[in-house]
Amino acid sequence: MQRISEYRAMWILVFFDLPTETKQERREYALFRKRLMADGFTMFQFSIYLRHCASRENADVHVKRVKKLLPKKGYIGILSITDKQFGNMELFIGKKETASQPEGQQLELF
């Protein structure tokens, strides 16, 4: 089986800061999060969700979907990076660096 190139595979990160002062704003915040998760995004940190995509073309499809979900108020950022760039991220809990995750095997279903 051929491995997907870490320069071709992409990660989409969605950063958002949405107002939650009124009941309606909290409802829109919750709906935005639910729709992100329904499209395969998972929470990385509070208000930061990410999704792995096999290619730039696949990432573009999901970016367009996120743009259709944008709430009326708030600040939203969308960043697409390669799997190689994502792998260079350093993660810490406090001052202690976390152990790297072992590389997973990419499976393809036809």
Rank of each mutant, 00 (worst) to 15 (best):
T42R: 14
Q2R: 05
G77I: 00
I81S: 05
D83M: 12
K34E: 15
R8G: 00
K34G: 12
K84N: 09
S100E: 13
K64S: 15
A99N: 06
E6L: 06
L31W: 07
C53R: 00
P71G: 07
F44R: 08
F86S: 09
Y29Q: 06
V14F: 02
Y75P: 01
R65P: 02
V63C: 06
Q85I: 03
T42V: 15
Y49S: 08
K67M: 13
F16C: 11
I48Q: 09
H62Q: 06
H52A: 08
K67Y: 04
E57Q: 14
Y75Q: 08
Q106F: 13
Q101D: 12
I76C: 11
Q106Y: 10
A99C: 00
I93M: 09
R8W: 01
T20R: 14
Y29L: 08
K84C: 03
C53M: 01
K64F: 09
R26Q: 15
E6G: 07
F41M: 11
L18M: 09
G104K: 11
T22W: 06
A38D: 15
A99H: 05
K96Q: 13
R65F: 07
R65V: 02
P71H: 07
S55D: 03
K72T: 03
E90V: 11
S55L: 04
Q85A: 05
I12L: 12
K68A: 14
K67Q: 15
D60V: 00
D17A: 04
F16R: 11
G74Y: 03
V14Q: 05
M89N: 06
P71Y: 08
E6K: 14
R3G: 08
E90Y: 04
A38G: 08
I78P: 04
K73S: 12
A38R: 13
E21L: 11
E6S: 10
L70Q: 06
A99Y: 05
A38Q: 14
V66F: 08
E25L: 02
F41E: 10
L50R: 15
I4D: 05
M10R: 06
A30H: 10
Q85Y: 01
F15I: 10
F110K: 09
A99D: 11
L36Y: 14
N88C: 01
F16K: 11
L107D: 04
K67G: 02
M37P: 03
T82P: 00
L70G: 06
M37W: 04
A38L: 07
M89W: 00
R65T: 08
F92R: 13
E97C: 01
E6N: 14
H52N: 03
R65L: 14
D39V: 02
P71L: 07
R56H: 03
V14D: 04
F46R: 13
L31E: 14
P71V: 06
H62R: 04
E21Y: 08
A54L: 10
I48D: 10
I93P: 00
D39N: 15
A30Y: 04
R3W: 06
R27S: 13
R26N: 12
M43K: 14
H52S: 06
T20L: 09
L50A: 12
D83Y: 14
L70W: 01
K68M: 12
R35S: 11
F86D: 08
K96L: 10
G40V: 05
V66I: 12
I12F: 07
V66Q: 08
